[in-house]
Design a binder for these strands. Sequence first.
DNA 1: TTACCCATGTAAAGGGTTACATGATTTT
DNA 2: AAAATCATGTAACCCTTTACATGGGTAA
Lengths: 171, 171
Amino acid sequence: MNTQDVILGLLCKEPRSGYDIKQHFEQYFSFFFDASYGTIYPTLTKMEGLELITKESIRQEGKPDKNVYTVTEKGKEHFREYLERAAEPELLRSDFLMHLYFGDMADPEAMNGIIRRALEEKKRMYDDLEDKYRKLDSVTGPYQKLCMELGLVQYKAFIVKLEEMLGKSGD
Amino acid sequence: MNTQDVILGLLCKEPRSGYDIKQHFEQYFSFFFDASYGTIYPTLTKMEGLELITKESIRQEGKPDKNVYTVTEKGKEHFREYLERAAEPELLRSDFLMHLYFGDMADPEAMNGIIRRALEEKKRMYDDLEDKYRKLDSVTGPYQKLCMELGLVQYKAFIVKLEEMLGKSGD
DNA sequence: TTACCCATGTAAAGGGTTACATGATTTT
DNA sequence: AAAATCATGTAACCCTTTACATGGGTAA
């Protein structure tokens, strides 16, 4: 899975601009995928060259022009191939867990702060995701909902465990 | 957090070779960090140049020579600075969740297979991690254990949710 | 008037993986 | 006889982020 596959998937649902794509990443994918404008725009140009998508410049009133991309038949076929491929193994990179792992080398006070901050951060992410979940429109399919539910239960488990940890060590 | 920081942390505990470091990554960090030999060896060379570590060649019987690296005072100081820095935000990249998100565009049979495989894979990872957890020696500090416990509860939450999903859709 | 939203793009640098190359010893 | 373990290293490539560049409209 790379940015190209994901963009292709979004454009299979409806035509979008690079800016719209980034918005969608932030709204719905933020907890398991992200890409910056520095990746999105060059990728769109590349995909146009490969004839996976076509560009149309739209003039807007009171806003800058936007380039709206539409997937081609070739692009749809590419995405179908992606969907059929076995999913790549999940990748997690957690600097918090690394800090925790080496916790005995740090000042206990500092570690406490790090754990507390991680907990606050996770709670914030949980609330954010829950908020997005509640705001899902009726058009949203069951699979999208399941995605978010999977995110929520994992966040929750993390939060519960961390709170249990902090509780045990007094405070 | 980059590979250099993590290597520094490990070498602060005891001198190790590149090979040993990779073993440790696989044993204890696999669920929240990894790096290949193609990163580890060049990084060690670079770190030696920066005088964060020193190299010693050890001749072994029946095995190839190994380069054992020891952290310097400068290296320890670097690692202390890393530990004091606020943890970077967690990064998850899940191709399974991406497949799931676009599930309505795929064949329902194929989706079922993808979900089943994801569940089996997670269960395998859970069992692996639990096995490592049970085998932890008495020397292992409480922080290392907490790391693994956090991994376990999140895996568990994912498994429970996925099984609930599969159960609901009959079969 | 400051800041944020909309909108697109480029260049440099960073950080990483995969594949290749080598080779002895031990286990199956 | 084959495969796994121990052990190190390089080169090519891939993908990505960050910082920079630009600029009009709108909300606080």
